[in-house]
């Protein structure tokens, strides 16, 4: 079932269209990657979902009905540009932000205690934010984003500013939140993390959505008939991959193994290709090269924005 659904959302700023007929749907208890180059309109869309600003056209539905002002209690938002009151104490500030999300003081205290213990940061409770390192501040901000147990979580570049250990800790927390029933919108430029955590992605470029689908399907869709074979080194196979509709991309000789990466100029079912190759050489391994999300991203965006 869809937790949140945007339909034909349009947002104009003076003389500039930030979102152009963008529609997307996020399944419940999934992680949805919202991708796109800088300035494409991702933040505008996120702000519309957070009701920080309203769309000019189109609508947003949550749980199958139009978004209401009270729904902000169901949403947790970690903006890309982090910030807390520098002079305020950690605990006091976390309590304040939790209460602004509609929690009672009592529940907020209980929830914060749980998270502070989990991250082992109780000793920070009475420190001022400005006394903490940037990474520590990020942790506090993460806690304040999730403490009210929102149904929908929006993370904008959640890993920026974290060291690899803490980034990993955070990634596991995000996956755990999903296991516990939360739905997550995840906006990032870090394609490796997209592949690790996302179930589904949408790509926005110049105010328009240009790609949308489950991550496996998309990668499948953008494979370029590139294959990799390993053969024995009895005789040189490079000449075979230089003609007959093959295009040699990479060749490597490693002891008794030759590794060849090549592209087919015409599509051919894998089975037929293997049959074809097996007659010419002794195959140790064969696999189709699926593009990484990074490659898909670059390919799609470059196609959409041809260089002048």
């Amino acid at each position: 079932m869809e937790l949140i659904k945007a339909t034909n959302v349009v947002k104009d700023y003076a003389g500039h269209r930030a979102l152009d007929e963008v529609s997307l749907a996020v399944k419940e208890q999934s992680i949805f990657g919202l991708l796109g180059p800088n300035g494409a309109g991702k933040t505008t869309l996120i702000r519309i979902i957070n009701q920080i600003t309203a769309p000019d056209q189109g609508e947003i539905q949550l749980f199958g009905r139009r978004l209401k002002p009270e729904d902000i209690h169901q949403i947790g938002y970690l903006p890309e540009e982090r910030g807390l009151y520098k002079k305020m104490k950690v605990g006091e500030q976390a309590l304040y932000l939790a209460q602004l999300k509609g929690m009672s003081r009592h529940d907020a205290l209980k929830g914060l205690k749980h998270w502070f213990e989990k991250f082992e940061i109780q000793p920070w409770w009475n420190k001022k934010i400005e006394e903490l390192s940037k990474g520590m501040q990020q942790k506090i901000q993460f806690v304040t984003t999730v403490v009210h147990q929102p149904k929908l979580l929006i993370f904008d570049e959640p890993f920026s500013g974290f060291d690899p250990i803490n980034a990993n800790l955070l990634k596991n927390e995000i996956l755990q939140l999903k296991e516990n029933g939360a739905t997550i919108i995840f906006s990032t430029h870090n394609m490796a993390s997209v592949e690790e955590v996302c179930d589904h992605i949408a790509l926005i470029n110049r105010s328009k959505k240009i790609l949308d689908g489950p991550i496996d399907t998309i990668k499948e869709q953008y494979k370029n008939d590139i294959f990799e074979v390993e053969t024995t080194a009895q005789h040189d196979v490079t000449h075979h991959f230089s003609r007959n509709g093959f295009k040699l991309i990479e060749y490597e000789l490693q002891g008794s193994i030759q590794r060849v990466k090549f592209q087919m100029e015409h599509q051919m079912p894998s089975n037929e290709l293997i049959k074809n190759l097996i007659e010419k050489m002794e195959i140790r391994s064969f696999r189709e090269v699926i593009p990484s999300m990074n490659e898909v991203f670059i390919q799609v965006v470059e196609q959409a924005n041809p260089k002048k």
Partner: peptide
């Protein structure tokens, strides 16, 4: 930049 969190 805390304002974005607060007005959400």
């Amino acid at each position: 930049r805390i304002v974005e969190v607060i007005i959400s």
